Computed example of a mutant assay.
Amino acid sequence: MAAPAPTAASAPVIKKKAFSWQNLAIGAAIQTFEVSTLGQPFEVVKTHMAAHRGDNLAMAIKKTYQRGGMRGFWQGLIPWAWIEASTKGGVLLFASSELEYHARAKFNLSPAWAGLVGGCGGGLAQAYTTMGFCTFMKTVEVTRHKAAGTANLSTWAVAADVFRREGIRGLNKGVSAVAVRQMTNWGSRLGISRLTEKIMKGDDTHRKLTVPERIASAVIGGALACWNQPIEVIRVEMQSQAKAADRPQNLNIWSTAKYIYQRNGVRGFYRGVTPRIGLSVYLTVCMVFGGDQIKAYFAEKSNKE
């Protein structure tokens, strides 16, 4: 005798997460903590390698230290990385949560596919709201020591000069590449992390994962998300202040890709991938695992009151 088909009533109900200023604050706090600890050193080293593709990891670390001592590894942290971190974390958690809900409730997508959709949308929102000018100025801080006449200018003076010469578009140079990077970054991170969690749960889909399992899923998601390193190298080159005689003017994504390939071949697109994997794993653990843990803590505390 055939089993009865599942009815709409038996399907799991996907509840919409209520808008929470607390979640926005949690996202901002986690992201600021991440970038102020290990995040910015990873960022500086991988940006140096992507801009100066002849340098290996050891050379990048050595030159960064020579440029500014230990403080050199946090170059661009204040104010640009802090501005970016304190805003993009909240944007990501809000946008991705909304999109994940609609993807599951209205389109009946699996948690992995919903995570992919939420991550892509959250990353796109990040790029066009807060990350464009911040990412540009962080890259300027890491690469401008090669540009004659700018080494002793304050970061504010450099930003003001760019704005006078090129306006808002100048401060958002490379934002299209940032958008592609963030979409693929967080789509991959959230999607792969959720898929890994599903695999770990096996047949018991309602089982709560242990802390090591959740950390492992975040690590796997963060590491595998670095498949898009070529777009990151393109983004850095578009925003770099390092000068080269054969470097085209008014670069876009395609002309930048062509320029990198002509100078460095296919390997040039993967310069800086090692520190970026470290950054991505650390960031994903902070945002995916840390964000879930902190939100769960406050939710439990609220239910007890």
Rank of each mutant, 00 (worst) to 15 (best):
Y259I: 08
N252L: 09
G119Q: 01
T284N: 12
G290R: 04
P79R: 01
S97L: 03
R207P: 07
G27C: 02
N252V: 09
A242Q: 08
T47Y: 12
G119Y: 00
R189K: 15
L153K: 12
A242R: 07
A151K: 08
T184P: 04
V35M: 14
G68T: 01
V233K: 07
Q293A: 14
G54Q: 07
V44N: 11
A11G: 04
S36H: 07
V288P: 00
I234Y: 06
G68K: 00
A3P: 06
W254L: 14
F73G: 04
I78E: 13
T150F: 09
A257C: 01
F289R: 02
K88Y: 15
G170E: 02
A299D: 12
V219I: 12
T129C: 00
L209V: 00
K138E: 14
A223S: 06
C120P: 00
V91R: 02
I83T: 07
F107A: 01
F298T: 05
K146N: 15
N252D: 13
I294W: 12
S255C: 02
N23C: 08
G39W: 01
F94G: 04
I277W: 06
S154K: 10
M137C: 01
K63W: 14
W113K: 10
R247M: 11
C134V: 08
L124I: 03
G268K: 06
T139H: 04
M238H: 05
V233T: 12
F289C: 01
V285Q: 03
N56C: 06
G115E: 00
